[in-house]
Amino acid sequence: MFEARMVRGFIIKRILEAIKDLVSEASWDCSTSGMSLQAMDTSHVSLVSVSLKADGFDKYRCDRNLTLGMNLASLAQIVKAAGNDDVITIKAPDDADKITLIFEPKSETETWEYEIKLMNLDSEYLGIPETDYSVKINLPSHKFQRICRDLSQIGDSVTISAAKDGVRFSTTGDLGSGNVKLNQTASADKPDEAVTIKIEEPIILSFALKYLNHFARATALSPQVSLSLSKDVPLVVEYVIHDDDDDEIGYIRYYLAPKIEE
């Protein structure tokens, strides 16, 4: 028996909104420690990895490890019907060929129940080694969203260059060019609005803005986002998910292979 109940059901809604257009089908791996998912987009250029700790749920029971393969677009469509204040419960028996989703509006005495068929997916998992990145940038997630959105009006790819004097995001296109320079913020009065930049070694790497704009759909999950970069390895864009007490209950990480000059 698997049962996971989340009072802040909007977290599940937001996770699905953040991944459904990038990966169409994926498997959730459920164990006693929590739920996780890893999937590549169809072009194999980017990868999304989601983890939700068992502690992050208000009730969590997993009697034995389960793999729940499903169409994420369908799941997202159904979960979209839940209200932002709804409690969401996911249930599956051990030999499940479907899962049950239960939505309970907080203030009302009604229960909405949906069943979703499961799929057998040939998932291709990639082993991602622990990496010491040369550059780690933490910035407000809305700022990252805006940088990606605004620069994609000009060009298709962004070049991120990080050196001692700050980080620059630049693009060029038929219209012209654009660039945004970010410097580390001085005070820690508003941690959500802080920009911190750690540089071991300067880097300059280019990425397709189309994918970064997909990643930025996770903005509502966290006020801050981190970008980890090293020469010749994929970029990692991470949104850490917190509970009401500000404890970490999971994350959504996106990996994107760089563009290489031919």
């Binding site: 590549m40 072009s43 194999h44 250029v45 980017s46 990868l47 291709e124 998992y125 990639l126 082993g127 991602i128 080694p129 790819s157 280019s206 397709a208 390895v233 994929p234 990996y255 292979a257 760089p258 563009k259 290489i260 000059e261 031919e262």
Partner: peptide, 14 residues
Amino acid sequence: TAEQIELFAYYLPK
């Protein structure tokens, strides 16, 4: 022009 590289160039299937 820049070439978009696949993730398989960096990470191996488990």
